[in-house]
Write a protein that binds this DNA or RNA. Structure first.
Lengths: 242, 242
DNA sequence: CTACTATTAAAACGAACGTTTGATTTAACA
DNA sequence: TGTTAAATCAAACGTTCGTTTTAATAGTAG
């Protein structure tokens, strides 16, 4: 009995279920009883293992962000070592930052698209403890990448770079998190997106589809982001398209 | 007595307060008691005037979106009439769509930046009734603008156009909604953003600052969005920057 | 076996939630 | 001025929330 339960210990199973439910219903919209019910553990298990609901959310993210931002730092280290003191190319910096994220979406053992969408959604959650938590978790990575971009674009005003990085983070976040929302809004012509749109399905059946989707998303998003970085300065909206 | 109360009737005052609080704390994070308390009305007033909390949120958005999307349709009508059957330029379409939105952010009587940020945040809320509501409210506008973009870019695959529109909506949404979040994440170098960062202040003192900020945001965001539309197709990430 | 620690279980806690009720006040019109 | 409908009010409704408590159950070293 309890074959599926014995595979993972309680702690890990709670983290997996919470990740999925927070993504599907948001932080406030997910109750402890929903989590412990879906994870088939006792109601008190969350408070026993994590202390509180807030701490659970933090641990859900810590588990993934530790890997993600570590990988990002390692990628930047490798690039800078290879460049040997010379400034990096802007696309290298962006590829290291966003490429690492998108590759994470392809790996189901790292949370896959479920976590990426949760991340994108949670970045806009207004709760104070969430914001301060993210600020702390991201501080080092953002600082390093900002410096790399400043060196890569010495002639662009630094405020402009930060603005554009801001927009790129937004486009990326939203493109991932809002997929199902805007699929409806934009009119369902992209039925290949449909596979992503089953937030409550945890079966392994959709894994392959999600991986393909992540690859496709990465390919389409990267040039868009570079386009954002390469765009002309304000007041110069010329008409050289098509 | 009740000088500030007598100016607006109960209904309108509830809408204003709810708009502000939903923005600051999210839908689930805002209680009826917070709303009625801040609006200085009885707890039962919301259910009396609107029926339920969900209906209140819908009315908060209806009040603004009716104006916004109506204006968007009128702007597109004007452009198409002026073009006299010829395809529009892509930048004209984007300017009509996003420019209308950003100009709304400059007008405090239309909700200003408070509503824009609420809109951006709520678009990623997972609650089902919110999603279906937005899909209905946006359907006509998106359909019209999609058609205009298809005509404006006959050589670009339609799926590609929808993708890029998707990303642009995301970048715009997030740039507005996530201002205070990413200000922290990206390191506070843009201290001119600080003025926006007082979600609980309703006094008129910050109005001028917010309007300036909206104009600045518009100027910076538009070329970024055009850059997104103008970006090369996948697999062609060349290095012509800086 | 005993003693001890870690984990799970059932039950209940007080607080806060959205909503409803029924009485009371306000405003408009005959 | 008396009548009626709209609006406001205090109070309570039943439910659900996150958390805590207390007891029972492994699992392990001495």
């Amino acid at each position: 009995m309890s074959e599926t339960k014995a595979n993972l210990d309680t702690r890990e199973r709670i983290l997996d279920v919470a990740e999925r439910l927070f993504m599907a219903h948001g932080y406030e919209g997910t109750s402890m009883r929903m989590i412990t019910g879906a994870a088939e553990v006792n109601l008190a298990a969350v408070n026993y293992h994590f202390g509180s609901k807030e701490a659970l959310l933090r641990d859900v993210f810590r588990r993934r962000l530790a890997w993600l931002n570590g990988e990002r730092l390692r990628a930047l280290d490798a690039l800078e070592k290879q460049a040997d003191g010379a400034p990096l190319k802007p696309s290298q910096v962006l590829e290291a930052f966003f490429g690492t994220l998108l590759r994470m979406g392809e790996d189901e053992s790292l949370g896959g698209m479920t976590f990426l969408r949760l991340l994108g959604r949670t970045l806009t959650e207004p709760a104070e403890f969430i914001r301060t938590f993210f600020a702390g978790e991201y501080a080092e990575v953002i600082e390093r990448y900002k410096r790399a971009l400043f060196r890569a674009l010495p002639d662009v005003p630094r405020a402009e770079i930060v603005w554009r990085l801001h927009f790129m983070l937004g486009a990326m976040s939203y493109a991932i998190a809002g997929t199902d929302v805007l699929q409806v809004v934009t009119g369902c012509e992209l039925n290949e997106l449909k596979e992503l749109n089953e937030p409550d399905e945890s079966a392994g059946a959709g894994v392959a589809g999600n991986r393909d989707e992540a690859v496709r998303l990465a390919e389409r998003l990267m040039p868009f982001l570079l386009g954002g970085l390469r765009a002309p300065l304000p007041h110069f909206i010329q008409e050289n398209l098509q």
